[in-house]
Every structure is written in C-alpha cells, then in structure tokens.
Design a binder for these strands. Structure first.
Lengths: 181, 181
DNA sequence: TAGACGTAGA
DNA sequence: TCTACGTCTA
C-alpha cells in the first residue's frame, strides 16, 4: 500500500516509521526507502545538480562502527572492501576507494546538511530463515558530520563517514536493550 | 497465502496454475515453485537418494530453444555459458559442463519419468520496470525425454535437455498468440 | 564456502 | 555495460 516504485525521496518516507522492519533489501526499494538492491548508499541530484546522499544500509559487510550511541561510522564503497562473497573479492585486488557516486554524495551531504535515512541490517546467521525473519530495521534520520580517509590493512585508501542521529526521534527498542547490557 | 517456504514439491504446486505470472525469481522461491534465487535448475533427492529435477527456469540467458511447440530444449548449467553479467564470464574461461547437480538431476529425470515444472522468463527489456511487470510465467509440467552433449562455439562441452510438455494442460494464451503469427 | 538463467540504477 | 553492504541451497 505504501509503494513508491522508483521514486527518490529526501528525508522521511510517508508511511515509514522508526523501528519498521523488513526482510529483504528489495522491500526497501519498493517502498522508496533505499533503492539499490545491493548498494549500501543511495543518492540523488539536488537542485544544483550535485549528488547528495538520501539513505544508507549498514549490514555489517564493511567495517562500520555501530555502537549504541547516536553516532555511526560508515565505510565508503568501492575498492573491493566488502566482506561479501562477491567474486571481485577473490579475483580483483583491493584498490583505493574513489570519491565518486555514493562516497561523493555522502561527502556533499556534509555541507548540504540534508537528512540521511539509516537502515540497519542484522546479519542474522539464523539457520531458520523462515517466515518471521526481520533483517532490516529503519533507524531514522541522521546527518553526515564529517568524513576522512584511512588506510586499510591492505594498504589501500578507505573513506569513513561520521553520521549523527537527529534528536527527537523515537528510540529503537533493541538499542535500549543493548544499552542496558 | 500460498507460502511454501523451503519446501520442495514434486509436480504441481498446490494453488499454482498454468499461466500464473510473477515479477521476481524470489517469488518462485516463496511459493515453492522454484527455490534457487538465480540457478536455473532446482532438484531434490528421490527415495533412492538420487538427484531428480523438479523445476527449471528458462529466461533466455542461455542458448535454449523455445519455439511455440510443446518441445523445449534446455541448456545445462555450469562452464560459464550464461550470457549474464556475472563477473565469471569475463574473468574465467569457458569450461566443459559437468554432469553434476542440476545437469545430473535432469539426466536422472529421464529414467525416473518424473514431471518437471517449467517457468518461462520474458527477458523484458522494458525500460518501464514499474508496477505491473510480469517477468516469469508458469508453463506447467514437462517430461525430460533425452539429453546430449554439444560443443559450443568456444569449443567446450554443453549439455542439452529435450523436454516435452505433458498433454492435457491448459495452453498459455501468449503461446497461442505467437502460434498464430 | 561458493555457485547460480538476479535486480535496479548510474 | 557495470557496479553493488543480495539471497538461497548444496
């Protein structure tokens, strides 16, 4: 009922609330929350024709820092840094990440100060991938505060983006649980 | 409502009728029609522990012969024969296909004489991939009659399987249309 | 762990 | 045409 095929929305997506859960990445596409079926960063052109980030998915395939605070460190894309089973990881060598596409969009969003939707993936290694698997959770809106370049263990350049959750949004229940640990 | 997660059924799937259309491969998995998200051949072990084919998807990525008759020539899998954008096609060389997994299952089904579900993919190059895209059609049950080995243009062995549609099933409307051409 | 007729968007 | 934090089963 909340289908937004192919549409790209900045900020809150109508009908989607913090804590909403999804099983598949493709669902995020249907709903206009995050369009790429695999890519971690979605973006659009702003009025000036510049790329700005609209949403990111953090599912643990890259070296992200996902503590329980309102700050999230997100790794840039490219350079074959993912831990996934993509054949590239075996065939191609690691490369420097480039400030293009999603990485460029996230950088631009620092100055643009636009909200970025954050979806967290659970990387549930549950062997029971049956009906009620909820792998992706909408975590609300964040702002990109800064970015820098690191050198990975492989000696190649990696981008890191620091995002901070915009105050005043409902807290995720499982976050509260984790905090109490 | 017709969810059959993870179940493997031989023959007709309850609730699924000839001509039923689907947008995504993953839907076929949900419904227990064809489980592999990408693989073209699904199979199971029979009572004797032998592999037998349960369903195939023909979406035009391999060199299949899909005329409008009740006979279908299906290409075996492996050897990097697909025309898809898999990186393997660029990185790896073509190889001889092996009589294992799906290929072996299809071969065994010749003797077992078990019905095999056939799903046809449309390879719709429609730029408008919006709401009402129906990419996969359930074509009903077929029997595997024979198989042989060919040598592809690349000089490597390729399996071909000849399947014949079991009589008495409803005819696909678009097939009738094509026939009248 | 790796293979497989995937999928959308730049 | 190619990339991308996919997804399932063996």
């Amino acid at each position: 009922k909340h289908l937004n095929y192919g549409t790209q929305i900045m900020g809150t997506v109508p009908g989607i609330e913090v804590g909403d859960e999804f099983q598949f990445r493709i669902e995020l596409n249907f709903l206009g929350i995050h369009r790429p079926p695999q890519g971690g960063i979605d973006f659009m052109k702003d009025d000036g024709g510049e790329l700005v980030a609209t949403s990111i998915v953090s599912s643990g395939v890259y070296d992200d820092d996902l503590d329980n605070s309102d700050v999230l460190i997100y790794s840039g894309q490219g350079g074959n840094m993912g831990k996934g089973k993509n054949k590239e990881n075996n065939v191609n060598e690691a490369k420097d990440q480039q400030l293009v596409k999603g990485n460029l969009a996230l950088k631009n969003s620092i100055q643009k100060k636009n909200p970025v939707r954050v979806i967290r993936g659970n990387k549930s290694t549950t062997s029971d991938s049956s009906v009620d698997a909820k792998n992706y959770v909408y975590d609300g809106l964040y702002m990109v505060e800064e970015f820098w370049q690191e050198t990975g263990s492989h000696g190649k350049a990696v981008f890191k983006f620091k995002l901070r959750r915009i105050p005043g949004q409902p807290e995720l229940s499982w976050k509260a649980v984790k905090k109490s640990k």
